[in-house]
Computed example of a mutant assay.
Amino acid sequence: MTFTQMLRKENDDIFRTIFNHPFVDGIGKGEVPDEAIAHYIKADYEYLSAFIRIYGTAISKSAKREDMRFFNDQIQFVLNSEIHPHHNFCDHIGVGYVELQDYPLPPTADHYMKHMMYHAHMGGLGETIGALLPCPWTYLEIGQELKTKYAPSADHPFYQWISFYADESTRDITRNMRQRLDKIAEDASHEEQKHIKEAFRKSCQLELAFWEMAYTCEEWPGEKVSSQ
């Protein structure tokens, strides 16, 4: 069993809970409250901006150009490709994408961002990848799960979103990140592996919490909840 296979097995409980979350399952059913979708996009736009910066940190920790090229390609993917599922959500609720940008992060998303930044700055490349990997990996499996469970046709309201994350490009990103982490783990000490596992587990937990944050329209205490 590879290191990342072990990570997946150890965190299957979180993956399964994500698949059954009402927001995620609602995507498959085509039934998600508009205000939850708007809240999700607001937070995810800022979260992905942080993800780009952490990819930049991964580049600075990379000794090989092939790794630098990979993380640079992922920056381009987030900037130019991952906007498409956002547009699918925006079109469904009838709100312009620009209208949902530049909002402060809700508590859970803020914590998730700072968790990733902590591991990226305090740990090595393996720990950085460990914190990053649950995002593409859970989304890949969400796309596959919803595609299998609901077999959405082209007229499904979230067909584009589901197809995007079940697509080969998302599989490639997850596979390439796993291969890099497996290689790093082979030469990592027990303590380094422990830190990677902790970073990965917490990111999985925060992926679940992110869906809950969006579904409940979580706000900071004392802030007025706004649907858009």
Rank of each mutant, 00 (worst) to 15 (best):
H156P: 03
Y150H: 05
W211H: 10
G124V: 00
G96Q: 07
Q144F: 00
M113C: 13
H156S: 00
I129R: 09
A209Y: 11
E191F: 12
H119T: 04
C204E: 09
W161S: 08
D110F: 15
E207Y: 04
Q193K: 15
E99N: 08
Q179T: 03
D102A: 12
Y118Q: 05
E145C: 03
H84C: 02
M116W: 05
G96W: 12
I184T: 10
Y165V: 13
T216P: 00
I142D: 10
E198C: 01
L125G: 08
W220G: 11
K149E: 13
D172M: 13
L133M: 15
A188H: 13
L206K: 08
E168C: 03
S169E: 15
N88R: 10
D182E: 08
V98I: 08
E186C: 07
D91P: 10
I173Q: 06
H115Q: 09
P106E: 04
D167N: 14
A154Y: 08
E191Y: 02
M116T: 04
R178Y: 08
M177E: 11
A166H: 11
P104W: 03
Y97Q: 11
A214I: 14
L140M: 14
E219C: 10
F158V: 00
Y215K: 10
T148C: 05
G123Y: 11
K114R: 14
M117A: 00
I142N: 06
Q193S: 08
L125R: 09
L100V: 04
G130C: 00
G96Y: 03
M117F: 04
Q144Y: 02
M116L: 14
D167L: 01
L125T: 04
L181G: 12
Q205V: 01
H111V: 05
R175E: 02
G123D: 11
Y215T: 00
S189D: 02
E218C: 13
K149G: 00
D167F: 01
E218T: 06
A185F: 14
G96D: 15
R201V: 02
I184D: 12
I184C: 11
H121K: 14
K197P: 04
L208N: 00
I129T: 04
A154G: 03
Y215S: 08
G126W: 00
E145K: 07
R178A: 11
K114D: 06
V98P: 01
A151M: 13
Y215G: 12
C135A: 06
L133G: 12
D110K: 07
H84A: 10
T148S: 07
I184P: 03
L208K: 05
H121G: 14
V98F: 04
Y139W: 14
E219A: 11
H190E: 15
V98C: 01
L208C: 06
L146Y: 01
W211P: 03
K183S: 11
G126H: 07
W220V: 11
Q160D: 15
N88A: 12
A188G: 04
K202P: 05
G126K: 08
D110E: 13
W161N: 00
G124L: 11
G123R: 06
I142S: 05
R201Q: 12
C90K: 01
E99A: 15
H119A: 05
Y103S: 02
S163H: 14
Y139I: 13
D172T: 14
L133I: 15
H121M: 12
I184F: 06
K114Q: 09
R201C: 13
Q160A: 09
E207P: 06
F200I: 01
L132F: 13
E207V: 00
